[in-house]
Simulated scan of single mutants.
Amino acid sequence: MIQAVKADGILTPKEEKLILEIAITEGKDPEIAINKIKKELQESEEENETELIDLNQKAGLGFEKFVIQKFDKKYFKIRNWAGDKFVDGRYADTTTQPDFQLSLNLRGQSYPLAVECKWRSEPKGDYIRFANDGQLERYKAFAKQENYPVFIVLGIGGKASDPAELYILPVQELNKSILHKSAFGKYHKKIDADFFLDQESNTLR
Rank of each mutant, 00 (worst) to 15 (best):
E200P: 01
R205L: 14
L179Q: 07
A23F: 01
R205S: 15
D93I: 11
I32H: 05
K181N: 14
H180S: 12
A59Y: 11
K181P: 07
A4E: 07
L18E: 15
Y127D: 13
A33T: 11
V150F: 07
R79G: 01
F195C: 00
K39M: 10
V153F: 02
E26L: 08
V115L: 04
E122Q: 06
I37G: 10
K38W: 15
K58V: 12
K6A: 05
P149K: 09
E40C: 04
N105P: 06
K186D: 09
E51Y: 02
L18F: 10
E26P: 00
P123M: 05
G89Y: 04
D84A: 03
G134E: 11
G125I: 00
T96F: 06
Q101S: 14
T25N: 15
L197V: 02
K118W: 07
E21R: 10
E43S: 02
Y148P: 00
K38P: 13
E64W: 03
A23W: 00
G158K: 03
R205H: 15
D192H: 11
I34T: 13
W81C: 08
Q199T: 08
Y167N: 06
S177Q: 06
D192G: 03
E64D: 14
F100H: 09
S110F: 11
N80D: 05
A33W: 05
R107G: 04
I22P: 00
E15V: 13
S182I: 15
G157F: 07
L136N: 02
R107H: 06
A193Y: 09
N80F: 02
I152N: 02
G134R: 12
R90N: 14
H188I: 04
G27N: 12
R79I: 05
E146G: 01
P163R: 05
L197A: 03
L11N: 09
A160Y: 04
L204Q: 03
D84C: 05
E49V: 00
Y75K: 07
G158D: 03
N35P: 15
R120H: 13
G158W: 02
S121Y: 12
F151S: 01
G27W: 14
K118T: 01
L204I: 03
L55V: 09
F142K: 11
A114R: 08
A7Y: 14
L169N: 05
G134Y: 10
K190D: 09
I32M: 06
I10C: 08
K70P: 00
I53W: 07
E40L: 07
G89N: 06
I78P: 11
V5D: 08
V153T: 03
D192M: 08
G125E: 02
C117I: 13
K17G: 01
A143V: 07
K124L: 05
K14S: 03
Q97I: 08
K118H: 02
N147I: 04
E45A: 12
Y91I: 05
F196L: 10
K190A: 10
Y111D: 01
W119P: 06
Q97W: 13
K14I: 01
E45I: 08
G9W: 05
I24Q: 12
P149Q: 03
G185C: 08
Q109L: 15
I2L: 07
I78L: 13
I32W: 04
K77N: 01
A183M: 07
H188S: 11
E47R: 12
N35H: 15
E47L: 09
K70W: 01
L41C: 06
N48V: 05
D162N: 12
V153G: 01
F63P: 04
K6S: 02
L11Q: 11
